[in-house]
Protein backbone atom coordinates (compact mmCIF):
# COMPACT_ATOMS: atom_id res chain seq x y z
CA UNK A 1 0.00 0.00 0.00
CA UNK A 2 1.47 3.38 -0.96
CA UNK A 3 2.43 5.79 1.78
CA UNK A 4 0.63 9.05 2.37
CA UNK A 5 1.66 11.33 -0.51
CA UNK A 6 2.51 14.06 2.00
CA UNK A 7 5.08 11.75 3.59
CA UNK A 8 6.90 11.02 0.36
CA UNK A 9 6.63 14.50 -1.14
CA UNK A 10 10.04 15.59 0.24
CA UNK A 11 11.64 12.47 -1.28
CA UNK A 12 10.11 13.33 -4.65
CA UNK A 13 11.10 16.97 -4.35
CA UNK A 14 14.70 16.01 -3.61
CA UNK A 15 14.85 14.20 -6.94
CA UNK A 16 13.23 17.03 -8.88
CA UNK A 17 15.60 19.57 -7.37
CA UNK A 18 18.58 17.67 -8.72
CA UNK A 19 17.05 17.71 -12.18
CA UNK A 20 15.38 14.32 -12.37
CA UNK A 21 12.13 13.94 -14.24
CA UNK A 22 9.52 11.94 -12.39
CA UNK A 23 7.85 9.17 -14.37
CA UNK A 24 4.51 8.37 -12.77
CA UNK A 25 2.71 6.45 -15.49
CA UNK A 26 3.45 3.57 -17.83
CA UNK A 27 3.07 5.93 -20.78
CA UNK A 28 5.67 8.30 -19.36
CA UNK A 29 8.08 5.42 -18.79
CA UNK A 30 7.62 4.13 -22.33
CA UNK A 31 8.05 7.61 -23.73
CA UNK A 32 11.49 7.92 -22.14
CA UNK A 33 12.78 4.36 -22.11
CA UNK A 34 11.04 3.00 -25.18
CA UNK A 35 13.29 4.43 -27.85
CA UNK A 36 16.46 5.66 -26.28
CA UNK A 37 19.40 7.46 -27.77
CA UNK A 38 22.32 8.58 -25.69
CA UNK A 39 22.54 8.08 -21.94
CA UNK A 40 19.72 7.86 -19.44
CA UNK A 41 19.90 7.24 -15.72
CA UNK A 42 16.90 5.71 -13.97
CA UNK A 43 16.74 6.13 -10.21
CA UNK A 44 14.31 3.79 -8.43
CA UNK A 45 13.34 5.83 -5.42
CA UNK A 46 12.33 4.31 -2.10
CA UNK A 47 10.93 5.36 1.25
CA UNK A 48 13.73 3.45 3.02
CA UNK A 49 15.18 6.21 5.13
CA UNK A 50 18.63 4.72 5.35
CA UNK A 51 19.39 3.29 1.90
CA UNK A 52 17.45 5.85 -0.12
CA UNK A 53 18.47 8.53 2.35
CA UNK A 54 22.03 7.85 1.20
CA UNK A 55 21.28 7.20 -2.44
CA UNK A 56 19.54 10.49 -3.22
CA UNK A 57 22.36 12.70 -1.88
CA UNK A 58 24.83 10.40 -3.62
CA UNK A 59 23.12 10.97 -6.94
CA UNK A 60 22.99 14.72 -6.32
CA UNK A 61 26.76 14.73 -5.79
CA UNK A 62 27.38 12.55 -8.82
CA UNK A 63 25.29 14.79 -11.07
CA UNK A 64 27.68 17.65 -10.39
CA UNK A 65 30.42 15.62 -12.08
CA UNK A 66 31.71 16.81 -15.45
CA UNK A 67 30.51 13.71 -17.27
CA UNK A 68 26.90 12.90 -16.57
CA UNK A 69 23.92 11.23 -18.25
CA UNK A 70 21.94 13.21 -20.77
CA UNK A 71 18.66 12.35 -19.06
CA UNK A 72 17.88 11.58 -15.43
CA UNK A 73 14.51 10.10 -14.59
CA UNK A 74 13.00 8.53 -11.50
CA UNK A 75 10.24 6.15 -10.56
CA UNK A 76 9.07 5.66 -6.99
CA UNK A 77 8.86 2.04 -5.80
CA UNK A 78 5.81 1.33 -3.69
CA UNK A 79 4.27 4.63 -4.71
CA UNK A 80 3.99 4.74 -8.48
CA UNK A 81 3.60 1.00 -8.67
CA UNK A 82 2.70 0.56 -12.33
CA UNK A 83 5.34 2.98 -13.56
CA UNK A 84 7.99 1.25 -11.46
CA UNK A 85 6.99 -2.18 -12.70
CA UNK A 86 7.16 -0.92 -16.27
CA UNK A 87 10.56 0.66 -15.76
CA UNK A 88 11.87 -2.57 -14.30
CA UNK A 89 10.84 -4.37 -17.48
CA UNK A 90 13.52 -2.35 -19.26
CA UNK A 91 16.18 -3.82 -16.95
CA UNK A 92 14.48 -7.12 -16.21
CA UNK A 93 17.66 -9.19 -16.03
CA UNK A 94 18.41 -7.30 -12.81
CA UNK A 95 16.47 -8.36 -9.75
CA UNK A 96 14.20 -5.67 -8.31
CA UNK A 97 15.49 -3.74 -5.34
CA UNK A 98 14.98 -0.22 -4.12
CA UNK A 99 16.64 2.09 -4.11
CA UNK A 100 18.57 1.11 -7.19
CA UNK A 101 20.05 2.89 -10.17
CA UNK A 102 20.27 1.86 -13.81
CA UNK A 103 22.40 3.64 -16.38
CA UNK A 104 21.44 3.12 -20.02
CA UNK A 105 23.38 3.96 -23.15
CA UNK A 106 21.47 3.72 -26.41
CA UNK A 107 18.87 1.56 -24.71
CA UNK A 108 21.23 -0.93 -23.09
CA UNK A 109 21.97 -1.16 -19.37
CA UNK A 110 25.67 -0.44 -19.01
CA UNK A 111 25.84 0.01 -15.25
CA UNK A 112 23.62 -0.95 -12.34
CA UNK A 113 23.77 -0.08 -8.66
CA UNK A 114 21.83 -2.44 -6.43
CA UNK A 115 20.47 -1.65 -3.00
CA UNK A 116 23.16 -3.84 -1.44
CA UNK A 117 25.79 -1.52 -2.92
CA UNK A 118 24.16 1.46 -1.19
CA UNK A 119 23.42 0.02 2.27
CA UNK A 120 25.83 1.25 4.89
CA UNK A 121 27.87 3.24 2.38
CA UNK A 122 28.40 6.96 2.59
CA UNK A 123 26.86 9.13 -0.13
CA UNK A 124 30.40 9.92 -1.29
CA UNK A 125 31.16 6.23 -1.82
CA UNK A 126 27.99 5.68 -3.81
CA UNK A 127 28.65 8.88 -5.77
CA UNK A 128 32.12 7.59 -6.64
CA UNK A 129 30.58 4.41 -7.97
CA UNK A 130 28.30 6.50 -10.20
CA UNK A 131 30.88 8.99 -11.42
CA UNK A 132 33.15 6.11 -12.37
CA UNK A 133 30.37 4.86 -14.61
CA UNK A 134 29.66 8.37 -15.94
CA UNK A 135 33.31 8.76 -16.92
CA UNK A 136 33.20 5.45 -18.71
CA UNK A 137 29.85 5.69 -20.43
CA UNK A 138 28.78 9.35 -20.53
CA UNK A 139 31.93 10.96 -21.88
CA UNK A 140 32.36 13.27 -24.82
CA UNK A 141 32.43 10.41 -27.32
CA UNK A 142 28.82 9.43 -26.56
Amino acid sequence: MPYDPRLVAPMRDEMVRMGARELKTVAEVDEVLGDQRGTTLVFVNSVCGCAAGNARPALAVALRHAARPQQVVTVFAGQDVEATARARQYFSEYQPSSPSIALFRDGEVVHFVHRHQIEGQSPQTVAANLTGAFDRFCGATV
Partner: peptide, 18 residues
Amino acid sequence: MTGHVFHPGHHALHGVTV
Protein backbone atom coordinates in the same frame (compact mmCIF):
# COMPACT_ATOMS: atom_id res chain seq x y z
CA MET B 1 30.61 -2.33 7.61
CA THR B 2 31.86 0.71 5.85
CA GLY B 3 30.84 4.17 6.89
CA HIS B 4 27.58 4.86 8.66
CA VAL B 5 25.49 3.06 11.25
CA PHE B 6 22.73 1.93 8.97
CA HIS B 7 19.72 1.72 11.29
CA PRO B 8 20.43 3.30 14.66
CA GLY B 9 18.85 1.37 17.55
CA HIS B 10 18.91 -1.95 15.74
CA HIS B 11 21.42 -4.73 15.21
CA ALA B 12 24.39 -3.43 13.24
CA LEU B 13 23.34 -5.53 10.23
CA HIS B 14 19.63 -4.67 10.36
CA GLY B 15 18.44 -3.78 6.87
CA VAL B 16 21.71 -4.82 5.28
CA THR B 17 21.91 -7.48 2.59
CA VAL B 18 24.22 -10.15 3.96
